[in-house]
Design a binder for these strands. Sequence first.
DNA 1: TTAAGTGCAAATATTTTGCAATGAG
DNA 2: CTCATTGCAAAATATTTGCACTTAA
Lengths: 149, 149
Amino acid sequence: MCERPHRCHARFRNFGYKLTLPRKVILDVLRKAKKHLSAEDIYLKVYKIYPHVGLTTIYRTLEILTNIGMVKRYDFGDRRARYELVSETREKHHIHLVCLNCCKIIGYSDFTDEEIKIFDSLKENLSEKNSFDIKYHQFSYHGLCNKCK
Amino acid sequence: MCERPHRCHARFRNFGYKLTLPRKVILDVLRKAKKHLSAEDIYLKVYKIYPHVGLTTIYRTLEILTNIGMVKRYDFGDRRARYELVSETREKHHIHLVCLNCCKIIGYSDFTDEEIKIFDSLKENLSEKNSFDIKYHQFSYHGLCNKCK
DNA sequence: TTAAGTGCAAATATTTTGCAATGAG
DNA sequence: CTCATTGCAAAATATTTGCACTTAA
């Protein structure tokens, strides 16, 4: 979806939002990072390219991006949200390994067919049993990374 | 583990902590609620029984309880932590359904043997591939509950 | 031209900390 | 008795909002 800037920008514009310089820079930072950045991480990176930017704009842009589904927001338990650009190439089943000590985050989506089948049927099951309209899921494993253990 | 007050209290004392009145009341509230309460939820419930309590004490007690493994802390994305007493009777695989609108939380642990097998092997796999020492996991599905959809 | 977008400062919300007073063991 | 625990007030942290100025389309 957002591998190349034009696509990324076009998609944003298609939702009726103006493509301003701060937003361009935020999208570029997200596209390059492809990691789980906090609002402040993004602010600091954007600041280097475009120092006039305010943290408010980062939050407001992230909210838009989250709402239109271009960005996914995660809460890994350290009381600050982290954001990741959604990519078409990324698997829809996606798990995070979070280090309890250094907060390093590893993404994993290399699932077997069997695992995917189970995930899908579980979701189906949960939707039905609880009459929930499930929009997305968030799976994470928490522990200590190789450096911290 | 904490079905009965004495057990619950004894276990707490066994970790070398003094069993004070505020802590007793907090444990009782947690034991009765068996839901996912925020610090403030707990504060309000404790306040009814023991109005002299301060919110600080709630936070400090919850930190202790989380550290000694009697309580599990969750971040469901609404920027406030929620706490749940860990019970021996509760399944070790435990998933939450979170309503994006009203924040209602449903716990689910009625898994098939096949599902449990997959979860266990996945965890094993992730530990090895990333040399992570996995302590716990947190799986949640997010969507709209029957009332909100 | 003009509504959408911006930065700043101030507000909010949640959680944490310093400190003197208190109370469990 | 003595040190862990407490409540209060203040601080810290992350995020949101009001408002006048700016800018993309």
